[in-house]
Design a protein around this nucleic acid. Structure first.
Ligand code: FES
Ligand code: FES
Lengths: 145, 145
DNA sequence: TTAAATAAAGATTTAAAACTCTTTTATTTG
DNA sequence: CAAATAAAAGAGTTTTAAATCTTTATTTAA
């Protein structure tokens, strides 16, 4: 809905890695793909990108994989979304006008502002570190079966 | 962001027709396309679909065009969105899980529920009739220039 | 009753998103 | 150092969304 499929996978992968890498463990790409139920190479691409931006970390070679360092733990899901889908969801007009503005508002401008700020609040108050396993306790799910 | 481009055009077209057809006038497809700044044939397709579903009305021939009857005036933007983009925005999981449910919630389930209900509230409380010109008074815009 | 106007329908093209496959590079370990 | 492992990079394919073009059907009015 709100996010591209790429972005949904990205968020789920980040959450998955955060859950699993709590104690410094590294998670291989295949395990991640299985864990969030996504195509292996597709999520690999996404993580490469997030890795360049420092939102996840990775090392190659045996026992390599993805993890999340102290710094990245403090980043938020808003950063992840911004990295993948860009700013539009945070600032774009709901009716697709090029510029959302107070001076030339669309008929739903004030309503969309509320919606966007709700989205913004949700995503920017959720740090990546919030999703580690000990906080999660198996109460939530990032794949179906 | 939240809607497909098709849906954005659709909403804008419906609002435009509602604004212009207040006194029973009919609006031609070219005028609509110009008025909302969209490709003529593309919005034509969208309106054909909305027309079949009774969300707008149309007549062919000279002086023909699109308009909105009494019944359609009472329909809401939620109906328009549902017709074009389907239900997903109202019920779908923000992280793309097949089924959003309380029993198997994603990590952001309760937050997404708030977002969705905000969207739902906005769209279902805006009737098509709300957008006629006399209410609008040139205070809002559905195209840039 | 014919010509013009207009939407409807259908077919096609283009562009973007989603997904896959292959090769390369870095790292570890024996 | 060689072999194995794992991510990075790049190229390619498929699918879906967006946009365009052409033809047909309906309505009006001269
Ligand atoms: S102008 Fe449309 S949301 Fe601000
Ligand atoms: S399960 Fe994700 S929003 Fe409900």
């Amino acid at each position: 809905m709100v996010f591209s499929k790429t972005c949904e996978y990205g968020i789920r992968a980040v959450i998955f890695i955060a859950q699993k890498s709590e104690n410094g463990a590294k998670i291989g790409i295949k395990e991640i793909a299985a864990g969030i139920d996504s195509p292996v190479h597709f999520i690999a691409k996404i993580l490469q990108d997030l890795s360049k931006r420092g939102l996840v970390q990775s090392t190659k070679g045996p026992n390599g994989g993805f993890y999340i360092d102290k710094v990245a733990q403090k980043r938020t899901l808003a950063d992840v979304v911004r990295a993948i889908d860009g700013e539009n969801i945070f600032i774009g007009c709901g009716l697709g006008l090029k510029n959302c503005s107070e001076t030339k508002p669309c008929p739903l401008h004030s309503e969309f502002k509320l919606i966007r700020s709700e989205i913004q609040k949700t995503l920017s108050s959720a740090t990546i570190g919030d999703f580690n396993e000990s906080l999660n306790l198996g109460l939530s799910f990032i794949k179906e079966r």
